[in-house]
Amino acid sequence: MASRGGDRALPTSAASGAAAAAAEEMEEGGEEEFGFSRNYFLAKEIGSASGKRSAARKLSDIDLVDEQVLRTSLAGIATKHEKEIKALLKRYKDLYPRWLFELRCGFGLLMYGFGSKKVLLEDFASTTLTDYGVIVINGYLPSVNIKQVLITMVEVLWDQLKVNRKCPPNKSKMQLPSSSQTIDDILSFLDSQISTDNDGFICVLIHNIDGPALRDSETQQHLARIACCSHVRIVASIDHVNAPLLWDKKMVHTQFKWCWYHVPTFAPYKVEGTFFPLILASGGNAQTTKTALVVLQSLTPNAQSVFKVLAEYQLANEKEEGMPVSTLYTKCRERFLVSSQVTLNSHLTEFKDHELVKIRRHSDGQDCLYIPLSTEALEKLLQELV
């Protein structure tokens, strides 16, 4: 019996020792796992709390720098790698004869690459295109009048042909197109009524053909038709990463006939950037309008219509402190935009969350709604909000 008990005692002892070791290991692992879990939930709790705090802050709460001060500081930044940049531009100048040859063959030149290409293109025009009329279009400007550009093109080309005595005698007294004519009429005149001598072309130099004022489909179609004219050549630059998406295969190969050149200059966009508000600067009405437009376009058509009612009221009553909520509700009900006060409140909540609409107390004690945009910015927003 003793031996049996001894026989049984050994495995029992071993088992208990193994169990104790396992328990100790589990305890240590448990403590480690518990510590990890505790730290995880503490981090989540702190993150949630900080997230709530950060969500309460808005871009308008940040103390931004005055735009003029920021631009002055940027202008004072010293240029680096001047020798390397000059050597790079010298290599591009060696390409001028080739570029002129391609223009005379009927192709267009499209320059892309990092850095402003304004100085490079204007240097090419002033040194190599001296025998041809040159018209410069600054596509980075907020607005460009394509019709006026076309009229100027006709006048420049007509004068050039007269100087070179290549104008047909029977057309020397022909009346040139005026601003009262349509763009199609001017394009037809430009393409068919003037001599088609290959040497009698003018060059249209377009800085940023992908600029905000030129990147819509209709304008690009007009520019493509201009490029098709036998006595017009286009030299353009692009900087937007999605600029090639402006054109289809026909426009690229048949109309513009682009010869692509990678010409990074690493020059700052000083002139081009003048018309765009800086992100870290205050007072950017254009950027505010663009942001408001993006937010409104993401809302439902009913919500956009409610906003229009408020905007139109604000423009018609500039001297008032705002539009009473009850007045807005009445006008929206009359136009069948909302069916109840709850629906209107849901729209107003969205507006307030995105800072499109704010509330202030009227002199008679009632809450009034107003849009924190200038009159000019609000008018532009209503024009673009279709």
Rank of each mutant, 00 (worst) to 15 (best):
H362T: 02
V306Y: 05
R91P: 04
S60T: 11
L382Q: 10
F307I: 06
C259R: 14
P142K: 00
A227T: 02
T182Q: 00
L121W: 03
G47M: 10
D248H: 05
P264F: 08
S13M: 09
S188P: 00
A377E: 15
Q175I: 06
I279M: 14
W260L: 11
R91M: 10
A303G: 01
T254V: 08
S126M: 11
G284L: 12
H231V: 03
S16A: 11
L315M: 14
L103R: 01
R71K: 15
L100C: 00
Q383L: 12
V163R: 09
A78V: 15
P168T: 12
K162W: 07
M1A: 13
V294E: 10
L293R: 12
D66T: 01
D159E: 10
I151G: 05
E384M: 13
K173D: 09
Q221E: 09
Y329S: 05
P177M: 01
G30Y: 04
V144C: 02
L205N: 06
K358T: 12
L369M: 10
Y269A: 05
Q297G: 07
L121N: 07
E82S: 07
G139D: 08
G284Q: 14
N164A: 02
P169L: 11
R333Y: 00
L310I: 14
K147H: 05
T300E: 03
F124Q: 04
A56N: 09
T288F: 14
F336D: 02
G284K: 12
R91Q: 11
G115C: 07
A15V: 12
T182Y: 00
D239S: 14
A243E: 09
A281I: 07
E28P: 00
S237P: 10
A213M: 01
K270P: 03
S54K: 03
D123P: 01
L121R: 04
F36A: 09
V136S: 11
F189K: 02
I238A: 15
P169D: 07
D185Q: 07
K166V: 06
C167F: 08
K331L: 03
N164I: 00
L245E: 15
K83G: 08
L120S: 08
R98N: 01
V295H: 08
A377Q: 14
V295C: 04
L245I: 13
W247A: 03
A303S: 05
A87N: 10
D353E: 04
T289M: 15
V149L: 05
G115R: 04
A243D: 05
C332N: 01
S179I: 05
H240E: 06
S340P: 04
R57E: 12
L382G: 12
C368T: 14
A55S: 04
T254H: 11
E27L: 08
Q193F: 09
D191M: 03
W258I: 05
Y329V: 00
G283K: 10
I359C: 14
T196C: 02
N164H: 01
F336E: 01
